[in-house]
Computed example of a mutant assay.
Amino acid sequence: MSLGDEREASGGYGGTGQTRTRLPEGGGDTYGTPRRAGRSSSRSLVTVVGVVVLLIAAIAFANRGGDDSSSDPDPGNKPQAGATAASGERPVKAGFAQDEQGAQSAAANYAVALGSAEMFDKAKRDAILQAIIVPARISEFEANLDKAYTPAFNANVGLNENGSPPNGYTFVSRTSPIGTKVTESSESRATVEVWCSGLLGLAGENSTNPVTNSWFTITMQLEWANGDWKIVTHSQKDGPTPVPGDERASTADEMAKAVEEYGGFTYAR
């Protein structure tokens, strides 16, 4: 069963079908405790954190409305520009394949789930763990992450003690998989490395924790259990990190608007 299937059954997190996605950090911690402490440390503390969603040209082309009236005399037949925000519908309803490709897809999707803002909500976090962790270790993961996502940690990333953002601010926590690599595999086990980019922070005027970008690689040990790949352990290390570009940093309002208008991916790879 995929993450999306199990989450629907538990009334929690959005679908994570079997197509491509990615995970956050644990700073070498097999339970994936938050990556950053303080300013830079609180960001490197969040195990599953942040993801930047970039629309590729192909999607933009597919979604734009046609403008060549000579190619179709009936404007009603032309595709209309569509919203890019996530629909909330699960795009994939099946589990991941029991092969290396399926293991990579599972790892990428689990990285996205673990790096989401939902991890800061106890009920949603537990639903995610129920869906992606091997059954024998769910309780252990829950206990360790409960110790990590504390009121003090929430305050370090700019949130209220209960994990909600202050009034007038938009909380951003997304992880985007850049690529995956299988280092070991068998019929029932696989070790997958996921190279990720992440976003974490508060978007809003005068934010003392502005949204910043980070790069990290997550290693997951997966096991085939109950007809799907499940996480046994995972750890995280920094990089590889590219040289920053010359783009102007967006304003707080631009960042908040982007987060609200561009829905995060619920699956990848």
Results as ranks from 00 to 15, higher is better:
Arg36Asp: 14
Ala62Asp: 11
Phe61Tyr: 06
Ser42Val: 01
Pro24Gly: 04
Arg36Phe: 13
Ser71Pro: 00
Gly26Phe: 13
Val49Met: 02
Gly32Ile: 02
Leu45Pro: 04
Gly65Val: 07
Arg64His: 10
Ser44Ile: 00
Gly32Asp: 11
Tyr31Ile: 11
Ser42Ile: 01
Gly50Thr: 03
Thr19Glu: 15
Val52Thr: 12
Ser42Trp: 06
Gly50Met: 02
Val46Gln: 08
Leu45Cys: 04
Leu55Ala: 09
Val48Arg: 04
Gly38Trp: 05
Asp68Ile: 05
Gly28Ile: 02
Arg64Gly: 09
Val51Glu: 12
Ser44Arg: 08
Thr33Gly: 12
Thr33Arg: 12
Val49Gly: 06
Ala62Pro: 00
Gly26Glu: 09
Arg22Ser: 15
Ala60Tyr: 03
Val52Met: 07
Ile59Gln: 07
Leu54Thr: 11
Pro24Asp: 01
Ala60His: 05
Ala57Cys: 02
Thr19Phe: 15
Thr47Arg: 06
Glu25Cys: 10
Thr19Leu: 15
Ser42Lys: 02
Arg43Ser: 10
Asp67Ala: 03
Val49Asn: 03
Thr33Ile: 14
Ser40Arg: 07
Leu55Met: 07
Pro24Ser: 02
Thr47Tyr: 11
Val51Ile: 11
Ser40Lys: 07
Thr47Gln: 09
Asp72Lys: 00
Ala37Glu: 14
Arg64Leu: 03
Gly38Leu: 08
Val48Lys: 04
Asp29Thr: 00
Val48Gly: 14
Ala57Trp: 04
Asp67Phe: 06
Gly26Leu: 14
Ser40Asp: 13
Ala60Asp: 07
Ser69Gln: 08
Tyr31Ala: 14
Gly50Trp: 01
Gly65Trp: 05
Ile59Ser: 06
Gly66Val: 06
Asn63Pro: 00
Ser42Leu: 06
Ser40Ala: 15
Ser44Gln: 02
Leu54Glu: 15
Phe61Lys: 09
Thr30Asn: 12
Pro34Val: 03
Ser42Tyr: 01
Val48Ala: 09
Val53His: 03
Ser40Asn: 13
Leu23Val: 15
Ala62Ile: 02
Ala62Cys: 05
Thr47Ile: 12
Arg20Val: 10
Ser71Trp: 00
Gly32Trp: 01
Thr21Leu: 15
Gly66Ser: 12
Thr33Ser: 14
Thr33Val: 15
Ile56Tyr: 04
Glu25Trp: 13
Thr33Gln: 14
Ser69Gly: 08
Gly38Asp: 15
Ala58Ser: 05
Gly65Gln: 12
Ile56Gly: 07
Asp29Ile: 01
Ser41Trp: 02
Ala37Phe: 09
Arg22Asp: 14
Ala57Ile: 03
Thr21Trp: 11
Ile56Val: 07
Arg20Glu: 05
Arg43Tyr: 08
Ala37Tyr: 09
Val52Tyr: 05
Leu45Asn: 10
Ser70Glu: 06
Val53Gln: 07
Thr47Cys: 09
Gly26Arg: 13
Arg36Asn: 12
Asn63Ala: 14
Gly27Gln: 00
Leu23Arg: 02
Thr21Glu: 15
Arg35Tyr: 12
Ala58Phe: 00
Arg35Leu: 15
Ile56Thr: 06
Gly26Cys: 13
Ser71Lys: 01
Val52Asn: 10
Ala37Leu: 14
Leu55Thr: 05
Arg35Phe: 12
Arg35Pro: 04
Gly65Ile: 01
Ser70Trp: 05
Thr19Gly: 15
Arg43Gln: 13
Thr33Cys: 09
Ser41Tyr: 04
Thr33Glu: 15
Arg20Trp: 12
Val49Phe: 03
Ile56Ala: 10
Thr33Asp: 14
Ser44Pro: 01
Arg39Glu: 14
Asn63Trp: 06
Gly38Val: 10
Asp68Thr: 04
Ser44Gly: 10
Arg39Thr: 13
